[in-house]
Design a protein around this nucleic acid. Structure first.
Lengths: 153, 153
DNA sequence: GAAGATTGAGTTGTCAATCTTC
DNA sequence: GAAGATTGACAACTCAATCTTC
């Protein structure tokens, strides 16, 4: 039996992720956006009003990353932060009308590029790819849980 | 027929890539390394002496990224730059003995974490995953070629 | 003490411009 | 003019520390 070629997977994944990321960034750049901001905007739009902590948790990001991104988007009038009336520690982030408008314009372009990229796979292969990613992410959950255990122990 | 769920693939890919990347970074951190530097070191070791332009091409990186990484690694005594005798524009990058020693120590840890992560997939699934990534990367080649054509036209 | 948000310092990446040599 | 390397300015991420409120 052949030795598993982890390097091929690592390199293929790195190449695809970074290259496709760059392609999406170039798509969004003319609108003053990046994929990172587009993803945040879509998330905020989907959930209505969110807290920084929600984003940190759902995207596995560092607090610093989120504060900085929201700061920049707030300065550009895309999002706004209001005090949370139910918890004086928290702030509620939502899209401004301008932010919603921008999202509605750029989101279809992202979907179109996704299509151009992913339609090279058959429906079955797309489902396979999603399933493999799901397995790998669940494996990460396990390994992270173990790491936390070690920390505590 | 169901509409392809591109968002699931996008989100799954983003989550897996960024989370696993962070896990590898934490593995390398005690040795003063990052995945990015580990990857560069492995490439330099494999090829003996390389030029900045080789790295830029083979990893699809911006020139800035490479110069900065090599600068930092040179300052730490991991790599060294020599003038290329055959081309006075170029410099040849190679690992120092200390760099080789460090790589030999850390590379097995990377392989071990790859195993822990990817062994959740069967051999067949690993092969599938690699093949799907290959298809997607070739698709990126096509799209990038089209983009270049548009630029020129 | 823990949760929510922010901030300081540093890495890895981008784009765009520059300088030297081919 | 094109290729090889570097640099300035900036985005998006990390870790670690801090401050307020629960």
């Amino acid at each position: 039996m052949a030795i598993p070629n982890y390097a091929e997977i690592r390199d293929g994944l790195r190449a695809f992720y970074t290259r496709s990321q760059r392609m999406f960034d170039r798509l969004a750049a003319p609108y003053g956006l990046s994929v990172a901001r587009l993803v945040l905007m879509a998330y905020i739009a989907e959930h209505g009003g969110v807290r920084s902590a929600d984003i940190i948790k759902d995207f596995s990001l560092a607090p610093r990353t989120v504060t900085e991104a929201i700061d920049a988007m707030e300065a550009e009038g895309i999002v706004l932060r209001r005090a949370d009336p139910s918890d004086r520690r928290a702030k509620v982030i939502s899209l401004t009308p301008a932010g919603e408008k921008l999202l509605k314009k750029v989101e279809p372009l992202r979907e179109r590029l996704s299509e151009q990229l992913l339609s090279v796979l058959s429906r079955q292969e797309q489902a396979q790819f999603a399933e493999l990613l799901g397995k790998l992410n669940r494996r990460l959950d396990e390994l992270e849980a173990n790491a936390d255990q070690s920390d505590a122990g």
